[in-house]
Write a protein that binds this DNA or RNA. Structure first.
Length: 369
DNA sequence: AATCCGGGGCA
DNA sequence: TGCCCAGGATT
């Protein structure tokens, strides 16, 4: 057996022993009994760590157990069930994909690569993941883990974009030989590559001493594994100054918070959060919030600051609170609602993480600064 | 090719 | 603090 195929055999043997348990993972080789679960998990896992997905996945599967139930639900229900996971466009994509599967494929996920790629939210990586993991077909796949693993195996050099292209060629080459162990277990192979990247061949500090394919790794032999791939160029994080207005009213004997629904596009699309006034400075943001409050006859109290960091933005939010006697039930024509404070604090169904943090800051005792 | 889109965990 | 994560869509 060639060195490359021996490396495959070693990795597959390691994976059979060392793989982590995941709610969506089918431990046995072969096709997955539930392609829908694979699609849900793959969309949730895009740019998201395994640990962060486990609970949301379980909740989602209880609420939308199959393509039919998801397709029948309003898109807002899907977005709100996604709350806390981030990248909320994925929820709309998954919902649209389910409707398409029901309408165009009889409720059965297609196996054809082109049909899969036509589904919203399904790009090159996810096509490979579905074809290999759901259907056990020999399809290549490259995510951040696989790109790093393959770059180290081959000691590839170059910028991020060229390494990605190289990784796709290398990943497909692994599946080319008729007698390749990877071809014999495509689902296990795809998952093994990613598992190795996530748990052993980690960014920054690879555990080469504990690596099952150390012998077949050129970067390890050269002692350069830790420097591959090179650091990525990153856009700077820009500050966004904002003021949040947390309006509390008693309803049915319990405190409720006034929430506004975000537009369907942009950040936190379709989610709920207290009104946020963005401006060029904290002072300008506070002025905007106070102008709004003056119109409504509200008496504002400063309740501190919240710093919320996204990939390319750092929100510096001044939190203002106001208590009103009677909620204005008549403004329901607007996309607003009153939500029980306890519910928002619990998990905030349909509320952005920033919204939850702002409400916490406004209503927890003695948080003023 | 750049930019946008969340949130969290970890050194 | 910086880095990265089972990426994709848009421009």
């Amino acid at each position: 057996m060639s060195a490359d195929l021996e490396r495959q055999r070693a990795l597959l043997a390691w994976f059979a022993e060392a793989q982590r348990t995941m709610p969506w993972r089918h431990p046995r080789p072969g096709p997955h009994p539930r392609p829908y679960a694979v699609l849900v998990s793959e969309l949730m896992l895009q740019q998201t760590r395994v640990d962060a997905v486990i609970e949301p996945f379980a909740r989602w599967m209880r609420r939308f157990p199959d393509f039919a139930s998801l397709a029948a639900a309003p898109v807002d229900a899907a977005v709100e069930a996604w709350a806390g996971l981030g990248y909320y466009r994925r929820a709309r994509a998954l919902h649209a994909a389910a409707r398409r599967v029901v309408e165009e494929h009889g409720g059965v996920l297609p196996q054809d690569a082109d049909a899969l790629a036509a589904l919203p939210g399904v790009g090159p990586y996810t096509v490979g993941a579905l074809r290999s993991i759901a259907f056990d077909r020999p399809a290549a796949l490259v995510d951040g883990n696989v790109a790093r693993v393959l770059a180290r195996w081959h000691a590839s050099e170059g910028d991020e974009a060229s390494l990605r292209k190289r990784a796709w060629r290398d990943a497909e080459a692994e599946l080319a030989a008729e007698d390749a162990p990877a071809r014999g277990a495509p689902s296990q192979w795809s998952q093994a590559l990613m598992e190795l990247g996530a748990t052993v061949c980690k960014p920054g500090e690879p555990d080469c001493a504990g690596c099952p394919v150390h012998a077949g790794c050129r970067a390890a032999a050269l002692g350069v594994a830790a420097t591959i791939p090179p650091p990525r160029k990153r856009a700077p994080v820009r500050d966004v100054f904002a003021a949040a207005l947390v309006i509390v009213a008693q309803r049915d004997g319990r405190p409720h918070v006034w929430l506004r629904k975000q537009p369907e596009h942009g950040r936190w699309a379709g989610l709920w959060q207290p009104p946020l006034f963005e401006a060029q400075s904290t002072e300008a943001a506070l002025s905007a919030a106070q102008a709004f409050a003056a119109d409504a006859g509200l008496h504002l109290v400063a309740r501190g600051e919240v710093e919320h960091v996204l990939t390319h933005r750092r929100y510096r939010v001044s939190v203002l609170a106001a208590t009103v006697e009677l909620p204005p039930r008549s403004v329901d024509a607007e996309p607003t609602r009153w939500s029980p404070l306890a519910e928002i604090r619990g998990r905030g169904d349909g509320v952005s993480r920033l919204g939850v943090r702002v409400v916490d800051a406004a209503t927890s005792s003695g948080s003023s600064s």
